Simulated scan of single mutants.
Amino acid sequence: MPQLPKPKIRSATVRSALGRQPQAFPHAKPLNSPKSAPKESTDGGISREELKARRRKFLMTAGALYGTFLAGAYYWISYGVAQGGPYEEAKPRDTAQTYDKLAKQYDRIIGRDELFMGLSFWRKDVAKQATGDVLEVSCGTGRNIAYLNIPAVKSITYVDSSEQMIEQTREKFTDRYAKYQHAQFLAKRAQDLPLDIKYDTILQTFGLCSHEDPVYVLMHLQDLLKPGGKIILLEHGRGTWDFVNRILDKSAASRAEVFGCRWNLDIGDIVRKSGLVIDKESRSHFGTTWTIIAHRAGDVMPPEQKKRFLIW
């Protein structure tokens, strides 16, 4: 039988078998070399590593610009707007005619501010707590209608001093709850409501600022409560920061002239002067957005278990 030739073993392989590092052949390309591996690229032809680097650079630049903007805005507000010029008092007045003129464009104007501040979360939080026989005063154009827990509402009465505003509310409600039979819409002042009809829940959102005498209004509203009933308020007023309050004070008169509201009122002080007992109070947006749940003195209320949804 012929003898086969012995296989030739490369020296590099022998050295590798003996535990030494094999030498690279002159013209051989490493199979797993990172340089030879193709780089993943996006549709624009940019490698993913470069794209990540660009994103990091963009985020760092955007963060620096945002921080500079906040610092500049704070300086301008604190030492420019809030310090210069005299403050003017926003005097109480009947705002029905003001809101009659604003009714058709009110949602468009106010909607921008509420979108920026995320106030739909707060509206939803308070509106879904309205149960039983419900009264909403200063209802405006019915901006809380979409957030009602309507199966929990036995009846609902909307009240606003502006006839144009209450008509907007009527249209929104009937469009959304066409089959609901226990709603009524009254164009009158809250303090003129008769005392012979009582309610489980009285709701008011951003309405105290437009009353001539908000303390008296709350005193009258608590007389409309059933035993164990509650008043839920979502209001804007004085904040917890002095420089914010200086801005509110300075622009209060012009704000009231255009929108009919005095947005620098001390909401907590008004509620306490009315004699209501506060069950829960929370503040947001530098303390200018107030959420209050209260009952009339003498009523025993169950402990509040619900947690508030808060944003800055």
Rank of each mutant, 00 (worst) to 15 (best):
E212R: 12
D200T: 08
A24H: 13
G63P: 01
G229F: 02
G45H: 02
E136F: 00
R262G: 08
Y79V: 01
R56S: 08
K226G: 03
G260H: 09
A62Y: 04
Q305F: 01
I109H: 09
L310N: 11
H27I: 00
I292F: 04
Q204L: 14
M60G: 12
S155G: 05
R308Y: 06
R170C: 00
G118C: 10
V81E: 12
D223C: 07
M60L: 15
D213W: 05
D279K: 01
M117R: 14
T61H: 11
I311D: 06
P5Y: 04
R308I: 04
G207P: 10
I247G: 12
S251L: 13
R176C: 04
R10C: 09
I156N: 05
I231D: 07
A73L: 13
V217H: 06
G80W: 06
G80K: 02
A297N: 14
K250R: 15
L225C: 03
Q83L: 15
I46A: 02
P92W: 11
D160C: 03
Y87P: 00
Q129P: 01
K29A: 07
G142R: 05
H182Q: 14
L193F: 06
V271K: 08
E49W: 02
E49L: 12
Y177G: 06
L18N: 05
H220P: 05
Y74E: 10
Y99I: 00
T13F: 09
L224P: 07
S41W: 00
R283N: 10
I292Y: 09
Q164R: 15
Q204W: 00
R112C: 09
T289V: 14
A28K: 11
A253Q: 09
I156Y: 01
Q23A: 11
R246H: 15
K128G: 02
Q83N: 13
Y158L: 03
G80S: 07
L18F: 06
G229H: 06
I109F: 14
T61V: 03
R93L: 07
V137I: 15
K250W: 08
Y158F: 15
A183P: 03
I9C: 08
A183C: 08
W241K: 11
Q97R: 11
T131E: 10
I150K: 14
E89L: 05
Q181H: 04
V215P: 05
Y79G: 02
L31Y: 05
I77F: 11
R20D: 12
S274Q: 07
I292V: 15
L193K: 03
T288W: 01
G237I: 06
L276K: 05
V153N: 00
F206W: 12
R255M: 08
L195F: 10
R56M: 08
M60I: 07
D43L: 11
V153C: 01
L221G: 07
S41I: 15
I231E: 09
A90K: 03
N149R: 10
I46N: 02
F259M: 13
L276D: 11
I46V: 15
A103L: 07
Q191C: 04
P214I: 01
L195K: 14
S161I: 12
L193C: 06
K154Q: 13
P303I: 02
I150Y: 00
T201H: 04
P92E: 11
Y199V: 03
A103V: 04
V134N: 03
C139Y: 00
K39F: 00
V217L: 08
Q83D: 08
L102E: 08
E235C: 11
